[in-house]
Design a binder for these strands. Sequence first.
DNA 1: CTGAAAGCGCTTACAG
DNA 2: CTGAAAGCGCTTACAG
Lengths: 354, 354
Amino acid sequence: MSTATVTLADVAVHAGVSKMTVSKVVNRKPGISEATRTRVLESVETLGYTVHASARALAAGRADTLGVLLPDLYSQYISEILRGSDEVALGAGQELLISTTRVRHEQRNIGRFSPGLVDGLLIVLPNSLQSYERALNTLRLPVVVIAPGEEEASENPQFPSVDADHYTGARLAMDHLLSLGHRRIGFISSTTHSAPSLKRLRGYREGLLTAGIALDRDLEATGDFTQQTGFRAARTLLALPEPPTAIFAINDVSAFGAIEAVKDWGLRVPEDVSVIGFDDIPQASQVYPPLTTIRQPLLEMGAAGTRQLLNLIHGVGAVSDTLILPTELIVRSSTGPCPISTDSSHPDRAGRPM
Amino acid sequence: MSTATVTLADVAVHAGVSKMTVSKVVNRKPGISEATRTRVLESVETLGYTVHASARALAAGRADTLGVLLPDLYSQYISEILRGSDEVALGAGQELLISTTRVRHEQRNIGRFSPGLVDGLLIVLPNSLQSYERALNTLRLPVVVIAPGEEEASENPQFPSVDADHYTGARLAMDHLLSLGHRRIGFISSTTHSAPSLKRLRGYREGLLTAGIALDRDLEATGDFTQQTGFRAARTLLALPEPPTAIFAINDVSAFGAIEAVKDWGLRVPEDVSVIGFDDIPQASQVYPPLTTIRQPLLEMGAAGTRQLLNLIHGVGAVSDTLILPTELIVRSSTGPCPISTDSSHPDRAGRPM
DNA sequence: CTGAAAGCGCTTACAG
DNA sequence: CTGAAAGCGCTTACAG
């Protein structure tokens, strides 16, 4: 437990070689005889030598470390993004240094990712990117933004970014519901006017219009991405004179609340009301019934963002200023055929036996 | 966006002072005239100077940074611990550097917290501490272990640790249920034989025995801390010839599954079956009905662990080798009086109107 | 109130 | 295959 630092020089003396030789051995560089390598490694082991990260970073001019700024640490999607990022980082011999937002300490949040500590910064929204801008500009560090899309606008021309295709995802959700024969479809939206939210809303509306169904503002209930508001919004929809047979929730967590509300109302999912979410967080497959949802490629987004950052650091430049990754329909058990055969002109799956 | 580094020397030249003076200004040290301070600060602003973290750490001999090793990033309790830790760290002028476990990369997990990067390490279990031991010993860094207690033994004599009082917490849960008139109480346990799990189980059993109720192994259903297994375990209990009127789940997430199972079974919480959890994760107050639970002082544990680590780093020594923090009963709406008046000798709240 | 010098522990061309 | 020297950007006693 002694904090006495063992240095490269100590190892060199112990092994009877130069510091440079020890450095080469420790860094697995070629051009060292097997005999000296063994001897040095023994000394390293005996003395318990560990490289001093700061000294290495200072001398080498790079930290081989990527900073990751996270909005919080409990949103399910965070870990998925991180997993993707970690994979790429590991493959590139980079470490990941994670920091999470301290409310009202935006400047410091960025500040701790000073040069010498990290070579680049990956910022995962949501967060007011604006509040970071000043700090970011002083920092002069390569930056890539990942926008999984709940609370913040994703179009920011200042930094390369990675986003999911929210609009097409919403259309996929609607097509699924429509193909099941649903005509009266509710939407649980959000209070924020962020780009991803608006895109999902647009997907909902245009999906309806494309199918020749008139919009009904009563079918759009407002939530704020939480289970609680999802519950309440669904309740509002169920209380309608003509309630929906399907509900499209803006995110999985809202969908969980909606399922709860349907059950609480004495109805069954999906027999009476179908529910579809958006995101495909790990929990989506674990709830009862397992949630049909639109998968946001979180892992891939983390990986792609990290690759972009690596390119930026190595001076290759970002592959593209804003990368849009495709979303995907994941059919599980929370959606089923429309219980009301309102329209016999819909052949699709409506008449298919389950 | 230029990565060209502006150094202390550049600022010194620009401001027409020595490097030392710039250093003092930047580090807010006394003994600088207001005039030079202003001039230096202007140069810093103009040139966009940022301190080089590694150079500072190398020269100063300390990084003013604490490493935090986390088991994962999606368990609800993690963020609470971190919040407590962050508060203390911020107050002590320390930064937090978070890293999360890479499966089968334990050595590297520790390795990236090399001296020069961090001054000490906070390890949040669960995780096989054993797999870290070798790396930890080579590292020679002060270490404190926080054991919020789901999957790993918390008694490890090698490092100072912070833990919650699991046994007393479980007794609190049982006393609450018993005082509501429940006599037939089920327990959703875990598969792991970790110290915290065993303590909670012991609290369940001894609570029963103390109340003069014989143990019934059928009332102990096994889960593994997940909502899914909580659901299944509760189902098993409800299917019993003589089902319980109350269920004590080993953690909140299991309790969520239990509530789901009770509803799914066509019964109500708490009118027909009471459910109590353990942990008090943020979600506990947001589910429906809000969960009665035993609060584990996660925030305080993070804070206390960080204080211990700071003491260790400053050579003060840990306040205590293992700190046990108290747990607390949080009454919400998932528990109520026993619906069956089996025993009129129990006055408590059984006969109270709701 | 201000500064010249040494040194933190490492890596990087450059020689041999 | 091996090494002596310079230097990365900063802080720390120590003088003045």
